[in-house]
Simulated assay, not measured.
Amino acid sequence: MTTQGTRLPAGVVMIEDSECPPATLGLWKHYGRKGPAYGIGAGYTVSLSELPADGGSMTKNVSSWVNKTQSDAKLVSSKGTRILKAGESMEEPADHNDTVERVEWV
Rank of each mutant, 00 (worst) to 15 (best):
H30K: 05
E88Y: 06
W65A: 01
N61D: 11
E16A: 15
P9E: 09
Q4F: 07
D95S: 02
T24M: 12
Q70T: 15
T99W: 05
A53C: 14
H96F: 14
R7D: 12
C20V: 12
D54A: 08
S64E: 06
L51H: 05
V13N: 08
V103A: 05
T69N: 04
M1G: 13
D72V: 09
K79E: 09
Q70S: 13
Y38N: 03
K85P: 08
S63E: 10
P93R: 13
G41E: 09
V12W: 00
A94W: 01
G87Q: 14
S47M: 09
E104P: 07
L75V: 04
V13M: 09
S47Q: 05
G43I: 02
P93A: 12
Y44H: 12
I83W: 08
V100N: 01
S49L: 11
E16V: 10
A86F: 05
V76S: 04
G87N: 15
L25W: 03
L51C: 12
N97F: 03
P21H: 11
E16L: 14
M90R: 14
L51P: 02
V46D: 00
M1S: 15
A73E: 08
T2W: 10
M1K: 09
W65M: 07
D98S: 07
Y38T: 02
P93F: 11
N67Y: 12
N61V: 02
W28Y: 01
P21V: 10
I83E: 15
W65H: 07
T24G: 04
S89R: 06
R102W: 03
Q4V: 06
E101P: 06
V66Q: 07
P36T: 08
T2Q: 10
L51V: 09
V12H: 01
W105E: 04
V76K: 02
V106D: 10
I15K: 03
S47Y: 06
L48H: 05
M14D: 08
A10S: 13
P36Y: 02
G39P: 02
L48F: 14
L27F: 00
E101Y: 08
W65N: 02
A94N: 11
I40A: 00
K29H: 09
V66E: 03
L51R: 01
K85L: 15
W65I: 05
L84E: 02
L75Y: 03
S49D: 13
A73T: 06
E104K: 06
P52C: 10
N97W: 03
V106E: 13
V46R: 00
L27I: 02
P52S: 13
P21E: 12
K79H: 14
I40Y: 01
N67H: 13
E91Q: 15
S18A: 14
R82P: 05
R82C: 11
V46M: 03
N67F: 11
E92R: 09
G32E: 06
Y38K: 07
V100E: 01
S89M: 08
G26W: 01
A37R: 00
A73L: 07
L8A: 10
P21W: 08
K68V: 00
T45M: 12
Y31F: 02
G32T: 09
E19R: 11
D98L: 06
L51W: 04
A86M: 04
M58I: 14
S71I: 03
G32V: 06
N67P: 10
P9N: 07
G43V: 04
D17G: 10
